[in-house]
Design a protein around this nucleic acid. Structure first.
Lengths: 348, 348
DNA sequence: GCGCTTTCTGAAAGCGTTTTCTCGCAGAGG
DNA sequence: CCTCTGCGAGAAAACGCTTTCAGAAAGCGC
């Protein structure tokens, strides 16, 4: 099953067998077909490791995300896979399960694999130390010719990036909600140091401010970027006695959790509270009610980040591709209810 | 950045450097720490290809599924990733996008990578020829020590498998629907040659038959295993003038499509038609209305299939692990409406 | 103090390819 | 007829590691 065996069976030298199969140089046609036949008969499968070692190159790329089970990452990953299939690349997938240490370990592993490119999907971690350690791991990789590209990553990494239109999208969403007549807002948000969070929050808040509406701090509830995070955040909001007319969850996944919490508490959406998310993950339009959100072309973003990683860099500047950000109005938002009786929190 | 450089810098031989870093043999402590220090200073990262080549082993496994973007596969993949992280394995992910040729090509690629194990997720393809070609590709791999394990695969492959309780689950679902009083059923189904499809269909139909209820052929509509497939199948059903009181979609993803079609046509679920799915993918409980389905522990299945692949085979028999199959009743089903006026198809 | 184990280290032989480098040979040009 | 090109094939040198095989050093009993 080695090339040597194939060569011997075909009655040619090792070198010729290699050339015949790879087509790197001209080989006499009869020899080539003899080699091909021998390889077929022996069921020869080249050893990718030997090839990689000898040729100092390979066809693998690494993809690091928080959790493939999350529809957001799954959709982006699907786009990456599509692009990889087209370019005949093999994707090594790594899920960090949101543990910073694991992320850095994976980068190291992918370096050891001599992956052509490393794709980082999703916001970085809060901890500045980790971000620095990550950069330290990435820098020699890039210097050695490796490519790095990210989707919505911390800005401290100077690499090519696909950036969701977080700020603009959130602003547009706020605009749309204001236009419906809302003035009382609450936000369900994630870890504050993530750019994804701060951008969306800033965009939303700025647009409100422009309309003279302020967002009270007690109406900003934090939680992890998960369904549970949205659920508990929404419950916390209600428990505080807050009754905004409109809630913005910074991700659709959190919005799903919030929806469940509202339903559980008998709060009707959108009659009592309007709810909006961000990302437009699949299935979100099938919810009850269909969720208003800011659309991100997730699969296309996956394809683009791969393309970005593969494209020859033309200068020292990192390229940035902004995508998405369009508001998709669905039934989960409606004009605010007419002057609800103020639900007072305490008995002052 | 080669081990040779590290060894030189530490003032030891190549062999000692290797042993010091891998800990395969005892190495004097001062030498070991000198090697470690040298490796650190040089930012040494071992070349996984060279290691794999020299040691004839590596830590990668291959995962082949139809589409990571599909929540069903995403959830299973998440389980596989979890198991892989625990065992320190790197996962090479391949999406076939439902093209048989691509699947076989990926197996070949993974063979070339000398992956420790190959995991095949999802039903096989209709075409008997492809299934045979796949087996032919897998057989020498297994003989060479490779491990193969599958989730819900065609039985013609004699490999370890995690099998969803398709038949039993569908039967139980039918039982539950009959108990609610339904007698007029329709089924939205996938490609008939897939065991997933035939098992679910058989389990459902058998249970109906046991209750003396027959499933008319014109009430079985086929389509691909996608949201669109469910959507068009449901539309086709309605267009034929069929008005069953209960529809069973063989996958949740198809059920989601059906739900959209029903909504579009003004058919209320569950008031006019009850709807049930299969798989219990995430988010399906958040639908409008929440979907009744048969639960499969998808993430656990992913972990188990990895475990199965890694476990030392104890005999020639392939192991089979049946999982899931419990009915989850949610609001998408209800007792049938009281004797609806028969919507007649033609004017006989 | 001598031989016998027992550790530990180093030299060197692979692992399975790709890729020079060399050389034979045929055809072209003088 | 002889030399010069150029094409195609083979020998052999990497590629960066692990691991076997010896050998040196050290520990031990007698």
């Amino acid at each position: 099953m080695t090339l040597d065996a194939v060569a011997r069976r075909a009655g040619v030298s090792l070198a010729t067998a290699s050339r015949a199969l790879n087509g790197t140089t001209r080989v006499r046609e009869d020899l080539r077909s003899r080699v091909r036949a021998a390889a077929d008969q022996l069921g020869y499968i080249p050893n990718a490791h030997a090839q990689a070692l000898a040729s100092a190159s390979n066809n693998t790329v690494g993809l690091i995300c928080h959790d493939v089970g999350d529809p957001y990452f799954a959709a982006i990953a699907a786009g990456v896979m599509r692009a990889a299939a087209e370019k005949d690349l093999l994707v090594m997938l790594a899920s960090t399960f949101r543990e910073p240490a694991r992320e850095i370990a994976y980068v190291s592993t992918l370096r050891a694999q001599r992956a052509r490119a490393i794709l980082l999907i999703g916001s970085g971690f809060q901890d500045r130390t980790w971000e620095r350690a990550l950069a330290a791991e990435l820098e020699p990789y890039v210097r050695a010719g490796g490519r790095v590209a990210v989707v919505s990553r911390h800005r401290s990494l100077r690499v090519d990036a696909v950036l969701p239109e977080n700020r603009g999208g959130a602003s547009a969403l706020a605009r749309a909600l204001l236009d419906l007549g809302h003035r009382e807002f609450a936000v369900l948000t994630g870890p504050p140091s993530l750019t994804t969070v701060s951008d969306r929050l800033a965009g939303f808040r700025d647009e409100l401010a422009r309309a003279g509406v302020t967002l009270a701090p007690e109406r900003i509830v934090r939680g992890p970027f998960t369904r549970e995070g949205g659920y508990t955040a929404a419950r916390a909001l209600l428990a505080r006695g807050e009754r905004p007319t409109c809630v913005f969850a910074v991700t659709d996944v959190m919005a799903v959790g919030a929806l469940a919490a509202f339903r559980e508490r008998g709060v009707r959406v959108p009659e009592d509270i309007s709810l909006a998310g961000f990302d437009d993950i699949p299935l979100v339009r099938e919810l009850s009610p269909p969720l208003t959100t800011v659309a991100l072309p997730l699969t296309a973003m996956g394809q683009e980040v791969m393309a970005l990683a593969l494209r020859e860099p033309r200068g020292p500047r990192s390229r940035v591709l902004r995508m998405g950000g369009e508001v998709v109005l669905r039934a989960s938002v409606a004009p605010p209810p007419p002057r609800p009786a103020r639900a007072d929190g305490g008995a002052h």
